[in-house]
Simulated assay, not measured.
Amino acid sequence: MVKSSVPTALPIQQIVGLNSGPKLIVLGAVHGNETCGTEAIRRLLQELEQGTLRIERGTLTMVPIANPLAYQLKRRHGDRNLNRSMRVTDVPQDFEDRIANVLCPLLQAHDALLDLHSFHTPGIPFALIGPCNNHGDLQPFSRAEAEEAMALRLGVNRFVEGWLETYAQGVADRQARGAAASLDYGVGTTETMRRYGGIAITLECGQHEDEKAPQLAYDAVRHTLAHLGMVTDTVRSPTKESEIIRLYQVVDRLHPDDRFSRNWRSFERTERGEVLAHRHDGAELTADKDGWIVFPNPNAQVDQEWFYLAEASQRLAR
């Protein structure tokens, strides 16, 4: 790549209300091929400029393209996956390190994060939420109720928990078999935000090419602004028919010839004993309990996450 073609800046738009209030940050294109958030943010910026949307209180910060190199390349990452290892570093080694050095302090200066994403296989939109309140070592948290209240007003009824502990076990499994594995345990935007004391939700708005995804992303930002009292829009009632799913295992691809038993869709139901995939040597991978297959990626790289297994949770039962 020609050096001059590498982005040298991160565009950020900020609107500060004249009355004090919450500080919300919205991210688009953390993964460069997930552009629904970018489209939604640009629409919101146009409305703010025209005056059809007004921030009455608090601060709204929007980053339409959080990873400009990945966006320019029209792929998930630039040099690496920004949303698996976020940290401030004095000696940045790649483009995503430089982006993280800007994003981390920006997140720390806010109270809430809405990170807008999409996914590659067909499925319905969902929100990834953090842990219950806890004092553990991996991801201590004390604002679960506030985060849940925000999540329930995004316009989706499927919620997923268990990300970080599942990914941490996946990292441990990689280390045990001698594969390279980051010690950051899958820490991305939302995990970083929670470590700074804020609340954070990743909203998966639909398949990459789904024409409805940008609208869902836009509506979610509007609902969040109303919920936080930053605009005068009517506050959306919380979703009543919620389904929450807990991730409990990540399965890595170990060989280029590992293959799925069929073309799985994310969140397809699975039955205990059902064959999900085949290793290159013919070994079968089966579901150990009734549940779901989540984030199946037929193009996964070797020693990277291939698919997740999930089970039902009663966390948001009302």
Rank of each mutant, 00 (worst) to 15 (best):
M1S: 15
Q13A: 15
Q13G: 07
L18M: 08
N19T: 08
G21M: 08
P22Q: 12
K23Q: 11
I25G: 02
V26P: 02
V26C: 10
L27E: 00
T35D: 07
G37H: 04
I41V: 10
R42Q: 14
R42M: 13
L48P: 02
L48T: 03
E49Q: 15
G51M: 08
I55S: 12
E56R: 09
G58E: 07
G58A: 13
M62F: 14
I65K: 06
A66S: 11
A66P: 01
L73C: 01
K74C: 10
H77R: 00
H77I: 11
G78R: 03
D79C: 12
L82D: 06
L82H: 10
R84G: 10
D90M: 05
V91S: 14
Q93C: 12
F95E: 05
I99G: 04
N101F: 07
L106M: 15
H110N: 11
D111T: 15
D111V: 10
A112N: 06
A112I: 14
L116K: 04
P122Q: 15
P122M: 12
P125I: 04
F126Q: 04
I129C: 12
G130R: 05
C132I: 15
F141R: 11
S142C: 07
S142E: 11
S142D: 14
A144L: 04
E147H: 00
A151S: 11
L152T: 06
V160W: 01
E161K: 12
W163H: 10
Y167R: 02
V171M: 06
D173K: 11
D173Y: 08
D173R: 09
A179R: 03
S182I: 06
Y185V: 13
T189R: 05
T192C: 06
R194D: 01
G197A: 09
A200D: 06
I201M: 07
C205S: 12
G206R: 05
D210W: 03
D210L: 02
D210M: 01
D210P: 09
A213R: 01
P214K: 04
L216F: 00
A217E: 09
D219G: 04
A220C: 10
A220P: 09
V221N: 10
R222G: 02
R236G: 00
S237G: 01
K240R: 15
K240W: 13
E241R: 12
E241D: 15
I244W: 03
R246T: 14
L247H: 02
Q249W: 02
V251P: 00
R253V: 01
H255E: 03
R259I: 09
S261Y: 03
S261T: 12
S261I: 06
N263K: 12
N263Y: 12
H278M: 08
H278K: 09
R279C: 09
R279M: 09
D281I: 00
E284Y: 03
L285M: 09
L285D: 01
A287M: 02
G291L: 03
G291F: 12
W292S: 02
V294N: 00
N297F: 03
Q301K: 12
D303C: 08
D303S: 14
W306V: 00
Q314P: 00
L316I: 04
